[in-house]
Design a protein around this nucleic acid. Structure first.
Lengths: 136, 136
DNA sequence: GGATGTTTATTAGTGTACAAACGAATATAC
DNA sequence: GTATATTCGTTTGTACACTAATAAACATCC
């Protein structure tokens, strides 16, 4: 059997990611990227936390979360403050505007997942998500 | 049911991609990135072709394939030439060194796919790859 | 309480990834 | 055979993503 790029898991994962990004951008009205979306939703789940912890809980490198936080701050969705108990830390929390859009983000996210998984039926989606999670 | 980031297909896909990249880099001895690997294998499949066509066949943007070709050329795996019939085109082909490592690349790629899919058994892999392809 | 080690954040450098705009070359329409 | 459209490659700008190095703050051990 000849080796084929189209059967490589890494290549197919890249294609699936591209399609998801395309679906995401098609529906996005808030001007967020998938990464910024993930960080914002996670802050909503966790409440305020340090920039470093936020990076770990969203699987982002320290350098990556730094840029994401900078851009979310510039867009007005989050606010930063000093941690009174630890001078190393920058505490990240939702701004009032960030709080306001949280429900909207959840609905948006659900729609993106729905559209991305559209080629699979209900039963397949469950099986697929389960297997995909095991690969992480 | 509360909305959760950990159930978002886009987020999980990103995690799976991260794990694949990690497996790829752990085994890589040729100093290639997954993207460079994909381009090189594709040239091996197609023979020489234009830079633009190579980009389309590896799902890379014109600006992206430009950088990838530049770096593969710098590493000595490919060579560039002018298309005698179309002055717009840059023809990309494997260098002798690129030809030499092709078999090695195939074996390497098979091992990366194997290791990345390790959490799934034989039957599951088939089902998973089939469903993943439908999402592209 | 002082040496040691860890955590947190920043910076610099490399490599995807995409959009937009551009000029040159080619193809098509009429 | 000329106007129009398309293709090809390049460049600019923004946004991840990771490595490595650095410095400040904190924790621990003795």
């Amino acid at each position: 059997m000849a080796y084929r790029l189209d059967e490589q898991i890494g290549y197919i994962l890249r294609l699936a990611n591209q399609r998801h990004a395309s679906v995401f951008n098609k529906h996005s009205d808030l001007g967020l990227t998938p990464t910024q979306f993930a960080a914002l939703v996670r802050i909503g789940e966790m409440g305020s936390c340090s920039q470093n912890l936020l990076g770990r809980r969203t699987a982002m490198d320290v350098a990556t979360i730094k840029g994401v936080v900078t851009r979310l701050k510039a867009k007005g969705f989050i606010q930063l403050s000093a941690d009174p108990g630890d001078k190393r830390r920058t505490v990240v929390s939702l701004s009032p505007q960030g709080q306001d859009v949280l429900d909207q983000l959840h609905q948006f996210g659900a729609r993106v997942t729905e559209d991305t998984l559209a080629p699979l039926n209900k039963e397949e989606r469950k099986v697929f998500l389960d297997m995909l999670k095991r690969l992480t």
